Computed example of a mutant assay.
Amino acid sequence: MNEPWRPSWESTAVYRARVRGCLLGGAVGDALGYPIEFSALDGIRAAHGARGVTGLVTTGSGAVGLISDDTQMTLFTAEGIRQAHAQQPSGRLGADAFRLIRWAYERWLATQDYAGSPEKCEIGPAGGSYTGPRDGLVTEAWLFARRAPGNACLSGLALDFVPDPAAPLGPPGPINPDSKGCGAVMRAAPFGLTGAAPEDAFDAAARCAQMTHGHPTGYYAAGALAAIVACLMTGESIEGAVLRSLRLLARHPGHEETTAALHGALDLAAQGAPSAERLQQLGAGWIAEEALAIGVYAALVAPDDVERALLLSVNHSGDSDSTGSICGNILGARHGDHGLPHAWVERVEGRTTIAALADDLAATCGPR
């Protein structure tokens, strides 16, 4: 009789470190970019020197290491995925799992509606359909902060839509069908952390992105990031992960904008001599495919120098916290938490909660 396969201690430790790295890396990139999110490159350099920001800097409130809505939504995504996998340990995520993730987003929405007043927080039918217990992230007072959330995320979650896992991807979704802002892609990395095949991570991330962003480019960019992270979790190179995501994109109608943006990142990285001016050829990052391309480009040009890549990803005129968080998700999944700049990790808001959530996700979804 054959003994059941059991993962080695080493493979389990590597997996756990990569899950931690992805979530913490995204938070670090977010915290680097958040204070300069709406600043032009010239203004960043005037305020912080010719190299721009070279580490965590204070926000307008004087705090250091604050995360934005990007990390907030990423964490609630991870919480919803963990709950979904606890109920459905194997196989592709289905409608019941998407409902759990939708409820997680409703809990995030409550933190925005009651920002600064967690003791007054009410979660229930008035804000959606969630009537479950108040536990987990929604009990964390530091998450009750409104950090420039995207309009599509707020308006989309005001409507109770759960995607049909059997419906074809391709046509615009019913929620904000013209929106392809980066609010869907910046929260998508956790779908790649579950051990699912890249194509399944792509599908789940794209469908859950439709809860707020109905434009195909908006949800395909989310799917592509999840697929890239899924590939990195198995040890693929960043370039190999991007190439595989491009093959997945090619299966779906309406993929052209996302595909072109990723090809642009690959081509620009191959030219060498990275700079902020060169990075800005990819756009500003306010829309999904540009944010993905910028985060990917920064990771490609400095795959083994996490600090350099993260600084490149945020020092530009545009959505610096989103591009930084995407770059951090990618590099964290590749290197694990031990490969992140520890001096920055230690100063990131909520890092102990982020690490604990990562460990819970790894324990629920990890190798068996």
Rank of each mutant, 00 (worst) to 15 (best):
P4N: 11
W9H: 09
W9M: 08
S11Y: 05
T12L: 12
A13H: 12
R20L: 08
V28H: 02
P35A: 05
A47T: 12
S61E: 14
G62D: 10
G62E: 10
A63K: 14
V64N: 01
L75Q: 07
A78F: 10
I81N: 04
A84C: 12
A86G: 14
Q88F: 13
G94H: 09
A97V: 13
R99E: 10
L100D: 06
T111Y: 00
A115M: 08
E119Q: 13
Y130W: 07
T131L: 03
G132E: 08
R134V: 10
T139M: 08
W142R: 15
W142A: 12
A152F: 07
C153V: 09
C153K: 00
P165D: 01
L169E: 13
P171S: 11
G173A: 07
N176E: 14
P177T: 07
D178P: 00
S179N: 13
C182L: 11
F191I: 07
F191S: 09
G192S: 12
G195L: 07
A196S: 14
D203W: 02
R207M: 04
T212A: 05
H213D: 04
G214A: 09
T217W: 03
T217D: 15
Y219V: 05
G223L: 04
L225R: 07
L246I: 11
A261R: 06
H263W: 13
H263Q: 09
A265S: 14
D267H: 13
A269R: 06
G272P: 08
A273N: 15
A284W: 03
W286R: 11
L292S: 12
G295K: 04
Y297C: 06
Y297D: 05
L300V: 08
P303K: 05
A309C: 04
L310F: 01
L310Q: 04
S313N: 02
N315T: 06
T323A: 01
S325G: 04
G328M: 03
G332M: 08
G332A: 10
H338P: 00
G339P: 06
H342L: 04
H342T: 10
H342K: 11
W344A: 00
E346S: 13
T352W: 08
I354F: 00
A356I: 05
A356Y: 08
L361F: 02
